[in-house]
Design a protein around this nucleic acid. Structure first.
Lengths: 278, 278
DNA sequence: TCCGACGATACCCGCCGGGTATCACAGCCC
DNA sequence: GGGCTGTGATACCCGGCGGGTATCGTCGGA
């Protein structure tokens, strides 16, 4: 199954084999055997390249979910039964650039709960909390709609905030009291920054952003402008100007967790979050 | 993994091995090897019986999810790539006793959609739609809160209805214009019927119900009474009386599907459902 | 005290998943 | 057009792991 996903992603047996740390012939055979077992053709091999069939597309999607689920089972079991498990531990995934106050308030409030589990905060980049939750590296996550999708998770709403445009302080538009999405989408010489949404960068002229520091620098240099949640004001520089966007979608912060999860510790964390924030 | 789940369910190596169609020693060894690989103790073996550890509990839950996910991957792939797949097929799970009108309306409306997939209706017993959806035997389901849990699925609301008490027509209470939950919960000599909720029967004096026919018979015989959604009037007998329950929770019918699912055919079905019913 | 039940251990075997060497074929360049 | 390159498929070999049977150790109960 891992083999199939690797080949489907690379669309190249040799590279996939290399990525898997094995030789190409066994991989070829394994895939063929998988096709035989399922009774389904997964790849169109027409010399010079490989393509997924319809069934292959389905298996790529479902197979990833299955791999995530098994990885999650392994990780959560190990966390539950490790030698270091006199008391339970929870891993909370948050966006590194997310609101610090919110997180601090949550952690403080939860620490005061009797019998609280130990919380490990897992800071991640732009939008991978969903993957962390799905494959068991995290037990809960702070997610932000509309940037994250809550599909497949249970969640509770915590806070709502507007969005601001961040642009160089010396730019003419910095003097405005407010802006619209249409206005910032089309500023001559100042393209909108792009960051990965669900794993891929949207098309556009702006620079591709990997982290918040890089974004801050690019804005200060007058190379780009960005639309970010209101709480991002916390990390702005003197060289930045923040202008409210009157028609941008509201950003809602949720706490999300895998849809089953009957863990007592997790339930306590969620209750604390909704009570102290929501 | 299948092995582990079997042992965890049986709590007995011999019976688990029998259920798996294998001998006991290899099973013992496989479990021990699993424990070694995970670095976690899953069972307390204290001669005469086996018990799950905390980590074992976690793995039982997560492992079932993982097994479901892989089964789903296999089934959906086979359905997508089978020899009989010139056009796509969707499997819709509905409770056998569910509203016929609703289903008929949905199927008729969807059949009229251009490029509609073929819909296979999977009638099931009381509450197993969730399992069918999770392990890929179904692509969508009509579910009824609060009887089904929508956790882990995407869903759209379709209809809302009240509930009625069904009791023998000759019973004194049959003359009443309405009843309350408290009243029907404690009728002397007429205990409330029980059916499986999330896989187990709730405790109580009433008979355990397996299907709608059995329930109808038991009510007609004056052995039990039941609380059911309003649409169940369709299958009542002359020997039954239906009395509105003024304070019972509303029953909401949803169409639900696995949280990802980018299938075009499924999207069409959902759109049809929300447009023609909701 | 002996027997029965149950899980663990010992040992054997066949097969499947891994490896290397090689082939078959399509494009490409000279 | 003839090698050359790069691709996936095939042939063949080997070791280990998953399955089996036989047996043991140990506790409960008659």
């Amino acid at each position: 199954m891992r083999y199939f996903v690797a080949v489907a992603e690379e669309l190249h047996f040799g590279r996939a084999a290399e990525r898997l740390g094995m030789a190409q012939p066994p991989l070829s055979r394994a895939i063929k055997q998988l096709e035989r077992r399922l009774g389904v053709v997964l790849f169109e091999r027409d010399r010079r390249g490989v393509a997924l069939t319809g069934a292959g597309e389905v298996l790529l999607y479902e197979g990833r979910a299955a791999l995530d689920a098994t990885a999650a089972a392994v990780r959560r079991t190990q966390r539950a039964g490790g030698v270091d498990a006199p008391r339970s531990r929870l891993v909370l995934a948050v966006k590194a650039a997310g609101s610090h106050e919110l997180l601090q308030k949550l952690l403080d409030a939860y620490a005061a709960v009797p019998g609280a589990a130990e919380i490990e905060v897992l800071l991640c980049g732009f939008c991978d909390q969903e993957g962390l939750l799905r494959d068991g590296r995290a037990d809960a996550a702070l997610m932000h709609t509309p940037f994250n999708s809550l599909a497949g998770f249970d969640s509770e709403e915590l806070t709502t905030e507007g969005q601001i445009a961040v642009l160089p302080a010396r730019h003419p538009l910095a003097a405005r009291a407010s802006l619209t999405v249409a206005e910032v989408a089309d500023v001559p010489g100042l393209p909108l920054a792009r960051w990965p949404s669900y794993g891929v960068y949207p098309p556009g002229p702006g620079p591709e952003i990997r982290d918040q520091t890089q974004l801050a620098q690019l804005i200060a240099l007058g190379r780009t402008l960005a639309v970010v949640p209101d709480s991002a004001r916390a990390w702005l520089w003197a060289e930045h100007a923040a202008i409210p966007l009157i028609d941008a979608p509201q950003v809602v912060t949720h706490i999300a967790w895998p849809a089953h999860s009957r863990s007592l510790a997790l339930a306590g964390l969620i209750r604390t979050a909704t009570e102290c924030i929501g």
